[in-house]
Simulated scan of single mutants.
Amino acid sequence: MKFTFTIPNSLPEMTVKHFLEEQLLIPRKIRHFLRIKKHILINQEEVHWHQTVKAGDECQLIFDEEDYPTKEILWGNPKLVEEVYQDQHLIIVNKPEGMKTHGNQPDEIALLNHVSAYVGQTCYVVHRLDMETSGLVLFAKNPFILPILNRLLEKKEISREYWALVDGRLEAKNLIFRDKIGRNRHDRRQRIVDQKNGQYAETHVTRLKLFQNKTSLVRCRLKTGRTHQIRVHLSHHGHPILGDPLYNQHSKNKRLMLHAFKLSFIHPLTLNKLSFTALSDTFERELKQNG
């Protein structure tokens, strides 16, 4: 596996060590392989670890099979994939509701399998959406970029924005929910607000529109990534999402009205700002019917 790219103009001069460790966020084990095997070339020449690299230099990284063993998975149906963006290292797709991001068993077919078939190689999940939730999902196309994207996610440098249609009229334009979330001991499928034993969770909510039928369209930004975080916070504060089978069981909506609308981050290799938005046909249709 070999990758070649040009160091972006916006990057200041730095050592090879700093470039790999701080800029590319390459894990220590992989940096060790690159150094020992001399598998990093700058302008097609071997380099010392403390040599300086600068904007415009061509960087080539080489990985052996033992560095990143190939992972085989079952292929899905490429026709089920709605591509939003793709390059050499990653792909962003618009997931439909009712489909798992990845299977729980090796023989279970989910979005990951469909995306891998679409790309023609094994892909890797960077973040997931609940099965009932539609919207933008990021996948790594190779095991080299996966830990780099995971580090960006951990550092909260991948911004995710959701739209939700909820019961009730939100009187405040902006709200911040910081309730801790834990497991429901009586129903393993559910999460609940648990201020004593739960994990810290923070959701920023902005009211986008009020409808005549006493529902509200809201935008939610995640500062943490707990399971069912948006669904639990909105339900706990009296505004459950329409169509939510776990937290709004009396709703008559055909689908959960939660959609991952926007995904933004800085590409770790090109340093270009990537920002994408997408809606689904079913979300828009249900939105119009409820509005």
Rank of each mutant, 00 (worst) to 15 (best):
P147R: 08
T6Y: 11
K71N: 03
Q44M: 13
S10D: 12
H127T: 06
S10M: 03
V126W: 06
K262T: 04
Q86K: 11
T4R: 15
L90K: 08
K180N: 11
P147V: 01
P240M: 02
F144T: 01
M131G: 01
E284R: 11
R128W: 08
E108M: 02
E157H: 12
Y247R: 09
G198H: 08
H204K: 05
I241R: 12
E157W: 10
L25F: 13
L111Y: 04
L61C: 12
S275I: 02
H102P: 05
Y85D: 04
Q105A: 03
S216N: 03
P78C: 03
G198D: 03
A164F: 05
S264D: 10
K2H: 15
G225A: 06
F276Q: 05
H233W: 07
R31A: 12
V119N: 00
V205A: 02
S275A: 07
G135H: 01
Q86H: 10
T270N: 08
L153S: 08
H114S: 03
V218K: 01
T227K: 10
H228G: 03
Q212K: 14
Q249M: 00
F5R: 13
N272W: 09
P268A: 09
H259S: 08
L111A: 02
E157F: 06
H204Y: 07
E171M: 13
T70N: 08
Q44D: 15
V81R: 10
L175F: 07
C220K: 00
V232W: 07
V84R: 15
W75G: 02
K273S: 13
